[in-house]
Design a protein around this nucleic acid. Sequence first.
DNA 1: CGGTGCGTTGACATTTCTCAACTGTTGTGG
DNA 2: CCACAACAGTTGAGAAATGTCAACGCACCG
Lengths: 236, 236
Amino acid sequence: MSDTDLEQELRRSPHFRGLPADLIGALAQIARWVEFKAGEVVFNAGEPARAFYFVAQGGVKVYRLSPDGREQVLHHLGPGRSFAEAAVLTMPSFPAHAVATESGTRLVEIAGAPFRELFERDRRLAAVMLSSLCMWLAGLADRVEELSVTSAAARLGHYLLRLPTRSEAGVLVIELPMAKKELAAHLAITPETLSRVLRRWQDAGVVQSSGRRLEVLDERLLVAIADRDEGDSGRT
Amino acid sequence: MSDTDLEQELRRSPHFRGLPADLIGALAQIARWVEFKAGEVVFNAGEPARAFYFVAQGGVKVYRLSPDGREQVLHHLGPGRSFAEAAVLTMPSFPAHAVATESGTRLVEIAGAPFRELFERDRRLAAVMLSSLCMWLAGLADRVEELSVTSAAARLGHYLLRLPTRSEAGVLVIELPMAKKELAAHLAITPETLSRVLRRWQDAGVVQSSGRRLEVLDERLLVAIADRDEGDSGRT
DNA sequence: CGGTGCGTTGACATTTCTCAACTGTTGTGG
DNA sequence: CCACAACAGTTGAGAAATGTCAACGCACCG
């Protein structure tokens, strides 16, 4: 809840990643924590677009109401997501409604008018935001492609081959950036399946695994596995 | 290959979607088509960041070379993807290499210096680009969450519930925005599985399907199916 | 020492894919 | 207008992959 928290939360977002400290500070000045209980309204469609938001905890539902009163859910947002930036940047008023879906929902609210002002005054802000968003976008697009690959082994292979590697005595070594449990979740498979795939590879002499350390013994085979059944390597 | 093609290609990108016509025109002025054969170099790391690119046809591989000469693939890009925007916006030189992976690879090249100039002169450009990217980001993030849901039925349910609906004689009607075959690909399942899921739902009285038209007979049940096994509704 | 949680392994249930055949629709050329 | 091809969609049967549940080893930590 402190200002330090606020700055850290901002720095974690895809929008402001890599922003120089002074700009993060300036942003923190116009940001604040807001909290909601389940069902409480964050904003309603038609209201002036006075701010945009990052979800730190809890959940938010963004929806429209169709002419006949039906609720049209546009997004269900959890921690790490943001919303209403587009409205703040280019629209006079919010085009949709937003309500918290859980009690204890905590958001970072960035006031719109000061943000627009900052945005126009400091050219760095726009450039860094754009570049950061582009990189984030590329990462997500890669992830979608990855998840579209149906086979668990191919997904894992793909993922591993993109990780930074180092050479130790001529052997390719990969250090996993997260616990296997989390990695499994990232690839949308179960830890058991992950474990079994690695086992199979080890038995086949493709890799050697111990803890988070992986030695790639037969890179060509690994590449073949990763490429075997890519989905339609189509557009994002 | 004509200028009209160029403008249409630009308009299709997540970056420039929704840009006013005059700005699209200005961009087209500083953009041009470039073609590559398989293996041809688009740019090398260390060169001044003179342009960024959209892939229209073919494929491009972006990679780094590690100190020991190993090739570290960062991205494999297909039609619809873009690259090197971040470099052009915030770096003096390209941080990675890029080569075409297929013959007949066609890219739109946007010259860096004029773009930066345009970007600083016209504030709308920055605002619209950011807002467009944010929306695109939200869509991709949703997609990742969707694909992380393991069950085919849940994925389809999720997807359908976010589609625009209309009411006809009190019944909820959904019009599929693409052929079932494409929809299946979008959800990373086979057309057969899609067909079977719909059949099961129809037998259970949840929906009524005919061609691209879907009548939702029991919305609560559909919601239950979609929510049954969401993955860890975690962060993106 | 126990406890807690990750990672592994096994047996089994379930889902999904694959392959193949068949139906219906659409568009084309005669 | 019909015959035909081409292709989306459906259905069935069997195979393969993956998830589920349960048990166990192992490391880490109080």
